[in-house]
Write a protein that binds this DNA or RNA. Structure first.
Lengths: 343, 343
DNA sequence: CGTTTCACCGTAAGCGGTTACATCACCGTA
DNA sequence: TACGGTGATGTAACCGCTTACGGTGAAACG
């Protein structure tokens, strides 16, 4: 590996000049700059990032906090891949790398344990990370708040946090839900139920709120027994649907807070002998891949998946360079009408 | 941030001793060791990884090479999330972190361009990465070979590579395909077609080979027009199926090299008025999520998705510590019989 | 012609660890 | 008593880069 010193010797300049060529090119004479660059290229020079980070106290890395061995076994993020694509490409464009942090297993560790924000924050300091991107694993609101308060620049996905250098990005859950439920109402449905996510989950709460607004706007009554809680998983959708169907006056339309639950509901409906959408209209949320594959294809509220990553990347970079808090980002959603609501 | 020097001063020892406490605990007197550890804990000491890496010329990071802006637009890895879960948790357990590399956009870059192995290898040196994990993006065989030859420890997923410190992990594609096609033969089918992946793709080739073996074992003739090429995408499955159905003697069973193509084939069959599985049996490969959701649920060959990541992690760590090549890992597959083959 | 200005560049002190080597006290042994 | 061995620790060089500071020569100025 060629070092700056070698280049300096070959060019007859000092290491300081070599460094300047790469960091403040305008301060060095064009002729010598060219010379240094040429030699650097010939030698295949790669600046030592460890040395640079040590000296400048900052690296070009952003930490990604994503709990894989989570307390909710089997949990899968609905669109992790698209999110990462957006995140990574936006970060790459500005020379940043994404570091998937681990807090466990390191014998050298001092006082950091798994799923413990402190552990991640420690890692942030160890590696001079510019900031953190926090991926929601379903119910980390409290932990995320700790991150936000730590002073480390961080942006949370789908969890509203607040802190000196913290912000978040989320979809317009309320608006999307409102559009979805409104769509059902517009189709003439008057008995519209909702299957929610786990209580306390922010996107879920927002979706419930949007659902309520849509009912109100359509002049429909809001019945308590039409709102039943799920947990975003498919099975919970089936269970919830069964409870709805057991009602004296079962709904003719259901809005599920996730596509997975919508699929579960669809199963339950079919098992009960109902035809979808003829007897029961179903709308989901997320627009994950299976939405277009189930039969009937699921009408759903699409989230801007890569946009999530891009927005997170922009926010974190802005906070790193700007040094202050950024405004939260609310991404627009889009109602994708397919066959499950019989429009 | 507390440094080793501060600890040293507070404990009345030298920085060397502090360092030894963490790296060669056995060489330092128990009493002083306890003292140093206690003070370190009180100060919330976190070793500076940049300094450590600079000094030792190695970091605790493994690079992940995953092309997001690939020449095949819309490409998605069939099970990236599970793979990452396995990879990350196995690496975490040994104190390694995963760095998602970017090669583009860095103005400071010297001679590294996107999708160029050299760029990634340069990044490896810059950051003192222990090694690289290469995720196949569909057709990177040549590029991967360049990685393998670079001397950097690396393990490729689903691409057979060879090099001084390179190895790969892949599924038993041939065996899985053989079992799948054999299953169809066992069901009494004699006209069994196959929809392959893109020509040159190694897993696809192996699956074709397994398919051929199964036919042979069942005493069935191998007809050239029964093997039609797709590209792993859904649309290509539809197209391929249409061609198969246009044959004078259309097949009664189809084995697709991916679930996506199987779904596409299923659509084509249904559009042609065929019932699945009564008129046409279909088997896929991968066992992605949609396989269990389509109607009829897809019989398919399941890959050990998290196992991929775990195996890759073990291999790369073994090569880093061992310094030499590891044997390739072939993961067993499992035939998941659902409804699309009418067993 | 002396002085100021300015563009350019070198010197050297860090950044926070690791580690080869030296030191020192202490013990057992001849 | 002199000496080699051993365990515990200190000393200092080094890893490769950044940057504050100072120096130099030439152009510009009065």
């Amino acid at each position: 590996m060629a070092t700056g010193r070698e280049i300096a010797q070959l060019c007859g300049v000092s290491v300081a000049t070599v460094s300047r060529v790469f960091n403040q090119p305008e301060t060095v004479n064009e002729e010598t700059r060219e010379r240094v660059l040429r030699v650097a290229r010939e030698l295949g020079y790669q600046p030592n990032e460890s040395a640079r980070a040590l000296s400048t106290k900052q690296s070009t890395m952003i930490g990604l906090v994503w709990d894989t061995d989570h307390r909710r076994p089997g949990w899968r993020h609905p669109y992790l891949q698209d999110l990462l694509i957006g995140l990574k490409s936006a970060l790459s464009a500005h020379g940043y790398h994404l570091l998937m942090l681990a807090t466990s297993g390191d014998a050298r560790e001092v006082g950091a344990s798994l799923a413990d924000p402190v552990g991640y924050v420690n890692m942030t300091r160890r590696h001079h990370l510019g900031g953190l991107v926090l991926i929601d694993s379903g119910s980390d609101a409290e932990a995320f708040e700790a991150f936000a308060q730590s002073g480390v620049p961080c942006v949370a996905l789908d969890v509203a946090v607040d802190g000196p250098k913290a912000t978040y990005v989320t979809s317009d859950n309320e608006g999307g839900a409102r559009e979805a439920a409104g769509h059902l109402a517009g189709l003439g449905h008057t008995r519209i139920a909702m299957i929610t996510g786990p209580p306390g989950n922010q996107p879920s709460e927002a979706r419930v709120s949007g659902y309520r607004k849509a009912l109100e706007e359509a002049g429909l009554p809001s019945r308590a027994q039409y709102v039943v809680a799920g947990d975003f998983y498919r099975t919970s959708g089936t269970l919830a649907m069964q409870r709805l169907l057991a009602l004296d006056e079962p709904p003719t339309a259901v809005f599920a807070a996730s596509d997975e639950m919508a699929v579960g509901a669809l199963r339950a409906a079919r098992a009960a002998g109902l035809r979808v959408p003829a007897d029961l209209a179903i709308v989901g949320f997320d627009d994950i891949e299976i939405a277009s594959v189930v039969d009937p294809a699921l009408t759903t509220v699409a989230q801007d998946k890569p946009g999530f990553g891009v927005a997170a990347a922009k926010a974190i970079m802005a906070m790193i360079t700007g040094g202050c808090r950024e405004d939260p980002v609310i991404l627009p959603t889009r109602l994708v009408v397919r066959d499950s609501c019989g429009s």
